[in-house]
């Protein structure tokens, strides 16, 4: 939940530019690649995202088409043949959906909700954070008070309250996750922007009487990007996990279009019946996704935060 607290280590002033000839990006890539695990996880994340995007092409069946799903196929073990003749690789769930297809489609929902909410929250957070940092004074005070207030309250409670009032469904979960996350970005962006603002290049831009917007977007924003990326990865993983938790508590998705969290939670019903695959495989998929994103995020922090690197 509050993983951002570890992630949002404030960036440090006085970053020393290296003398090497490689571009910052090349340096970044070579630093990042020092950890084999992180590279593997990076490719895993890319693969998972591709899987989610091309779900309809990759998945053996369409688990959301009620005309094709039949309860006659319920809880088939992996390797058995379904009514329509296809072999189910990972078995079927309690409603007769092919589990592999459901996981792929479920990944799609989980990632859409996770990444989608992260992007919108990021956009809101960046705007609010930059405005706070740049305006300063009273506006800054008010904004930061709101942000602090929200951050002192656990994300899960806020999301819970919102979903209770909004009701179930992917769109509502998305809204709840955005509301929960924007403050993390706002604080991170403001903190880094405050540091950058006092630097000479911004001051010189001021002297050139460039417009405020231009300074904000062209000068400040790129320089606070690093911490945003770190917080962004961790928050995305966190959002996916939170969505799964909310689904487990019965406040997430609709029944016929389950996300990974709902799949696990449905599978919870079958833990005594030997149909292990229903909760284990979606759980593994969820785990791989979150752990990969977190390891990538962890590595990013190490690489992008010079104080912690050697």
């Amino acid at each position: 939940m509050n993983s951002a607290k570890t992630a949002a280590a404030p960036p440090v002033p006085g970053q020393i530019e290296p003398l090497a000839v490689e571009t910052p990006f090349q340096r970044f890539v070579s630093d990042f690649s020092e950890s084999k695990l992180a590279v593997a996880c990076f490719f895993a994340v890319v693969a998972i995202i591709l899987l989610a995007i091309f779900a309809p092409l990759i998945a053996p069946t369409d688990p959301y088409n009620l005309a094709l799903v039949t309860v006659a196929d319920k809880t088939l073990a992996p390797g058995m043949v379904m009514q329509d003749g296809t072999t189910t690789l990972l078995g079927t769930d309690g409603s007769g959906r092919d589990l592999l297809s459901s996981i792929i489609y479920g990944l799609r929902i989980s990632l859409t909700v996770g990444i989608g909410s992260a992007i919108v929250a990021l956009a809101i957070g960046v705007v609010v954070g930059l405005v706070a940092a740049y305006a300063g004074g009273r506006i800054d005070n008010i904004i930061m008070r709101i942000v602090d207030m929200q951050l002192s309250f656990p994300a899960i409670l806020i999301a819970l309250v919102l979903l209770v009032t909004l009701g179930k469904g992917a769109d509502k979960t998305l809204i709840a996750l955005i509301v929960v996350q924007w403050a993390y970005y706002a604080r991170t962006v403001r903190a880094s922007a405050m540091v950058e603002r006092r630097k000479e290049y911004v001051e010189s831009a001021h002297c050139l009487s460039l417009s405020r917007t231009r300074i904000l977007l062209k000068h400040l924003l790129p320089n606070v990007l690093a911490p945003i990326i770190v917080v962004g990865t961790v928050q995305t993983a966190h959002a996916i996990s939170l969505e799964a938790t909310l689904s487990f508590l019965g406040l997430g998705m609709e029944q016929t279009e389950p996300s990974l969290g709902s799949l696990i939670s449905n599978g919870f019903e079958y833990i005594h019946s030997g149909h292990y695959w229903i909760s284990v495989y979606p759980g593994v998929a969820l785990l791989l996704t979150i752990v990969s994103i977190n390891i990538v995020g962890d590595r990013l922090r190490d690489v992008l935060n010079p104080r912690l690197s050697k």
Partner: peptide
């Protein structure tokens, strides 16, 4: 990392 990646309920 596993510690804070694993969803509590699972």
């Amino acid at each position: 990392i596993l510690g804070f990646s694993l969803p509590t309920f699972w």
